[in-house]
Design a protein around this nucleic acid. Sequence first.
DNA 1: CTAAGTGTATTATTTAAATAGTAAACTAAT
DNA 2: ATTAGTTTACTATTTAAATAATACACTTAG
Lengths: 119, 119
Amino acid sequence: MRNLDKNRPVCPQICELLCVDIVNGVYDAERRLPAVRELAAGWGVNPNTVQKALDTLEEQGLLHSVRGSGWYVREDISRAREVLQELRIEKIREFFAVMESLGLSPEETCEFVKEWYHE
Amino acid sequence: MRNLDKNRPVCPQICELLCVDIVNGVYDAERRLPAVRELAAGWGVNPNTVQKALDTLEEQGLLHSVRGSGWYVREDISRAREVLQELRIEKIREFFAVMESLGLSPEETCEFVKEWYHE
DNA sequence: CTAAGTGTATTATTTAAATAGTAAACTAAT
DNA sequence: ATTAGTTTACTATTTAAATAATACACTTAG
């Protein structure tokens, strides 16, 4: 189970991790997730927080729950792919905005990234 | 006066904005900043928060204060340049880490940025 | 000296996120 | 039916960031 970044809000991070896992077919066989308590324990996090994240993914059409039974990945994972792409776009937008506020134009930011990668 | 991003903590943002302004020589003439209350009003933010940000910049050697008089930019702005560069590096590190958690390798992230910039 | 404008300090309050603890309702296996 | 494991719901508490409201100390201009 991947670790959470302590410097960012927990709930959205869980949404992101699960979204990636769904796209990668991690839960393909049974399409059933570990129990809420189990997930929470794995991340060292409160069950309520996991519950909230799962509710969000349900609203987005990635999961559905069966009370008393568990959480299941939806048959069609195309929504998961869409949501993941939206997340990536959101992050890249934020990144360019932050760098702009730090005095780098989009072009300069792009150059900065290239240089950074080649080291 | 540049606007703050409501989705990020205020205090560090103020540090960033002021740091950029210092590097850009915005306060060169008198090297004196607007009053704490005035800055706070300009950003629609609490004076205490501005005070804390200024204290941070003082610790970092970018500013110094004269009680009863005001806040002044230090003669030598090389520290400001260093701090700004550190901020940019911190942001690019965070960005690559977040994209990695969203399933993109550094190489893929670099490609993603290039494509994004060329649109 | 005085008054207005500064930085500084303190305490209390708000707000949002996450935690803690508990209970209820449902499912599935035995 | 019983039992264990599950989702769901609720209320209270903690924590960190920011706000609110004052008060105080100092500088500067008049």
